[in-house]
Amino acid sequence: KYSDMIVAAIQAEKNRAGSSRQSIQKYIKSHYKVGENADSQIKLSIKRLVTTGVLKQTKGVGASGSFRLA
């Protein structure tokens, strides 16, 4: 599940300011076997996790910027 992968990526990075979408994508692609549409799936999952309150956006708008666990 992409949401689990995103949470794992943010936990692994341990950046106080949060993790960027690009760094999350890079982590997921190197640690998991994902399909061609992974980028758009990650983007959608990040937006969903922010609206449900699992992630907090520290910089930027939408799916860009930095995110950390709430």
Rank of each mutant, 00 (worst) to 15 (best):
K1M: 11
Y2T: 03
Y2E: 00
Y2S: 02
S3V: 12
S3D: 15
S3Q: 11
S3N: 10
D4A: 11
D4L: 11
D4Q: 10
D4W: 14
M5I: 02
M5L: 05
M5Y: 07
M5N: 01
I6G: 00
I6A: 01
I6C: 02
I6D: 00
I6E: 00
I6H: 01
V7R: 05
A8T: 07
A8C: 13
A8H: 07
A8D: 05
A8E: 10
A8F: 04
A9R: 02
A9L: 05
I10A: 02
I10K: 00
I10V: 13
I10N: 00
I10Q: 00
I10L: 07
Q11S: 09
Q11T: 11
Q11I: 12
Q11K: 13
A12T: 04
A12M: 05
E13K: 06
E13Q: 09
K14W: 06
K14N: 14
K14M: 08
K14P: 09
N15D: 06
N15L: 06
N15F: 05
N15Q: 06
R16P: 15
R16K: 12
R16V: 11
R16H: 10
R16F: 09
A17V: 07
A17E: 11
A17P: 03
A17M: 13
A17C: 15
G18H: 04
G18P: 03
S19M: 11
S20L: 03
R21S: 09
R21I: 15
R21T: 14
R21P: 08
Q22W: 08
Q22K: 09
Q22A: 12
Q22I: 09
S23R: 06
S23L: 03
S23C: 10
I24F: 04
I24S: 00
I24T: 00
I24L: 02
Q25M: 15
Q25N: 09
Q25R: 06
Q25H: 09
Q25F: 08
K26N: 12
K26S: 10
K26I: 10
Y27W: 10
Y27V: 00
Y27G: 01
I28G: 00
I28C: 04
I28E: 15
I28K: 00
K29A: 06
K29G: 03
K29N: 05
K29S: 06
S30E: 13
S30I: 09
S30K: 10
S30Y: 06
S30V: 08
S30G: 06
S30P: 00
S30N: 09
H31K: 04
H31V: 05
Y32Q: 00
Y32G: 02
Y32F: 13
K33D: 12
K33S: 09
K33Q: 11
V34E: 03
V34K: 01
V34G: 02
V34T: 05
V34W: 03
V34M: 05
V34L: 06
V34P: 03
G35K: 04
E36T: 11
E36V: 12
E36F: 09
E36G: 11
N37M: 06
N37H: 08
N37S: 06
A38F: 11
A38P: 04
D39E: 08
D39I: 08
S40T: 12
S40H: 13
S40V: 13
S40A: 12
Q41S: 06
Q41A: 11
Q41Y: 11
I42N: 01
I42G: 02
I42P: 02
I42E: 00
I42S: 00
I42F: 05
I42C: 03
K43S: 13
K43L: 14
K43M: 13
K43I: 14
L44T: 09
L44G: 06
L44M: 11
L44N: 10
S45R: 05
S45E: 15
S45D: 08
S45T: 15
I46L: 13
I46D: 01
I46K: 03
K47Y: 12
K47P: 02
K47G: 06
K47N: 10
R48C: 15
R48L: 13
R48S: 07
R48A: 10
L49P: 01
L49G: 00
L49C: 04
L49Y: 00
L49N: 00
V50F: 02
V50K: 01
V50G: 01
V50N: 01
V50E: 04
V50T: 04
V50L: 12
T51P: 00
T51E: 14
T51Q: 14
T51W: 10
T51L: 13
T52R: 11
T52D: 10
G53I: 03
G53M: 03
G53A: 02
G53V: 03
G53C: 05
G53D: 02
G53N: 03
G53Y: 02
V54S: 02
V54I: 10
V54K: 05
L55N: 01
L55M: 02
L55H: 02
L55T: 04
L55Y: 01
L55F: 01
K56Y: 12
K56M: 13
K56N: 06
Q57M: 13
Q57V: 14
Q57G: 04
Q57T: 07
T58S: 09
T58M: 12
T58V: 13
T58K: 04
K59I: 08
K59D: 08
K59G: 13
G60S: 07
G60E: 06
G60F: 06
G60W: 06
V61A: 10
V61L: 09
V61I: 11
V61P: 11
G62E: 05
G62R: 06
A63N: 14
A63M: 12
A63C: 14
A63E: 12
A63L: 11
A63W: 09
A63F: 09
S64V: 08
S64D: 14
S64I: 10
G65M: 14
G65L: 14
S66M: 13
S66H: 13
S66N: 13
S66W: 14
S66K: 14
S66Q: 11
F67I: 07
F67K: 03
F67S: 04
F67L: 10
R68K: 11
R68L: 13
R68S: 11
R68E: 10
L69E: 04
A70T: 07
A70Q: 05
A70E: 04
A70S: 08
